[in-house]
């Protein structure tokens, strides 16, 4: 892997590509409810940007860009975001993951937000939860595999 850092073409090309990959990853996550894609796919795409960075510029550079402790924390945070949305709905008076309650309903409404607007918000939030976890776990797995190799 060491000599990969000496490849100028690779380095330059990666530097150009990585921002695009990241933007595409966010696009896939965000637009899951409109076209193909969603948190899983988007998360993987995001992770591939980081892993590419790690492959080309080395592990230490990756650790600087994405500190392992932060990455691991984010992995847990993703699931927490997802389940937090569910718990939020529960606390707001609905059932677990009943997105209708994600924006607190008006006084006296039996079933709130029947127009589906709240539903979209819920979906986007949970998709981001998924995306964050998938992305960070992939990076973690990559970190763990390479860590052992250099130990």
């Amino acid at each position: 892997m060491k000599n990969m850092e000496d490849q100028v073409v690779l380095r330059v090309f990666s530097k150009i590509m990585i921002p695009f990959i990241i933007i595409f990853g966010f696009y896939v996550i965000t637009h899951g409810e409109l076209g193909p894609g969603g948190g899983f796919q988007g998360g993987v795409i995001l992770a591939s940007a980081f892993i590419l960075y790690g492959l080309v510029f080395g592990k230490d550079q990756l650790a600087e860009a994405a500190p392992p402790r932060v990455v691991e924390g984010l992995a847990a945070f993703g699931v927490l975001l997802y389940s937090g949305v569910g718990a939020w709905c529960l606390l707001a008076g609905g059932n677990f993951l009943d997105y209708s309650y994600i924006i607190p309903p008006a006084e006296g409404a039996v079933i709130p937000h029947l127009d589906g607007g709240a539903e979209i918000w819920g979906m986007i939030l949970v998709e981001y939860g998924v995306g964050i976890t998938v992305c960070t776990v992939m990076i973690t797995v990559y970190n763990m595999i390479t860590e052992e190799a250099e130990a």
Binding site: E72, G73, L80, S83, N95, F96
Partner: peptide, 21 residues
């Protein structure tokens, strides 16, 4: 009424939070 959900959701969320403890 939410006990059925909490039975499972609580250990899940708590498990995730444990990472930060």
């Amino acid at each position: 009424d939410s006990i059925p959900a909490l039975m499972v959701v609580l250990p899940l969320m708590a498990g995730v939070i444990t990472v930060f403890t």
